[in-house]
Structures are given as C-alpha cells and as structure tokens.
Amino acid sequence: MDIGSQMLHALIILFAAIFTDNILLARFLGMCSFLSVSRQVKTAVGLGLAVVMVMTFTIALDWLAYRYILQPYAIEYFRFILFIIIIAAFVQFIEMVIERYSPLLYQNLGIFLPLITVNCAVLGASLFMVIRQYNLIEAVAFGFGSGAGWMMAIVAMAGIRERLNNAKIPRGLQGPGITLIIAGIMALAFIGFTGVLSGR
C-alpha cells in the first residue's frame, strides 16, 4: 500500500472507531466512569480529553511492546499483564509531569488521570488492536478514534443528564436507573451507523 491509501485506511479506522464501533456504546467498555462521572458536561469533557490522550499514547506503546517484546519471544499470551502494566505506568508518569509543569492542565485534565488507570476501555482498545492486526499508524488512529468516541458518548450523556435535573423521574429510577436506560437508548441510536464504515 502506498502512503496515501494507508492514510485513507487509517482515517476510515478512526471514524469507524468513533461512530460505527464506538467502544462505549457498541462494546460497552469503560462503563463505570461513564456512569459515575457523567453528571456535568464540564467534568465529562475533562475526563473525555484525558481518555483520548491516554488511549492514543498507550495504544502506541502497547503496539511497540507487542511487536518488539512479545512477538519475538512468542509470548503474546502475556499481553494482558504487559498492557496493564504499561497503561498504569504511563498514566502515573503523565500525571506527575502534568501536575508539575502545567497546573492549568492538571486542574482541567490531570485530576481525572487516576480514574483512567482502571478504565477498561483503554485496555480494551489495545486488545482490539492486537486482534485486528493493525499496523502502528492504524493502531494510533484506532486509539485516538476510540478515545474520541468514548468522549463523545460521555459528553452527550452528561448533556442529557444535566437536562434530566429538571425532569420528573419516578423515584426508583433516579440516578443509575435512568442513566442505564439512557445509555441503552443511545446505544440503539448508534446501531444506526452499523455497516456504514468498517475499519477492519
């Protein structure tokens, strides 16, 4: 493949990851922070950006580790452990850096980083990358797209929940109940994109 068509392919993967194969709404990964941190649009944006950043970088690191450490020794089955360690270390590291050098960024984004270490969407994206045998460029596009898709979903959810504050919700459905129902409806809506693009 020449560079041009490779880029095009990466672009398709990116958009597929956002819309047709949204990691949250189609794969239901990263649910817990999706449910708990989606009360305000402002915080959802902060968390979303942090996820985009972490996913993009960790997927590249994981790709490299997979390609140059696991594959040569034929120990691919260790990818779970290795990926988790790399993600955790990266998140810790980037948190320290941001906290030290950019209080403003830390204020808006850094404080969400500890929440992300345990976000299964991050690990999920890296594992999909392996299954689908992406090359590095595709992997980064996929990581970025998955993060952006996740962010879009949580920001949309936060927007809806801000509106819900003024709605009369039956007592038993308040809080997690109505949130899960909304998540289900959003997922249904996203099914509409199925088949439009395929990044595989």
Partner: peptide
Amino acid sequence: PIAIISGVSALLAAALIFAERVI
C-alpha cells in the same frame, strides 16, 4: 517469558520511582 515480563515491570517501576524523585 517470566524474566522478560518481570524485567519490563521492574524497568517501568524503576523509571517511575526515578520520575517521582525528580518530577
């Protein structure tokens, strides 16, 4: 395999400790 995984973990841990000291 065990040596490789432990080695990588140790390396990352060391890097983090170092970063914590410095950063």
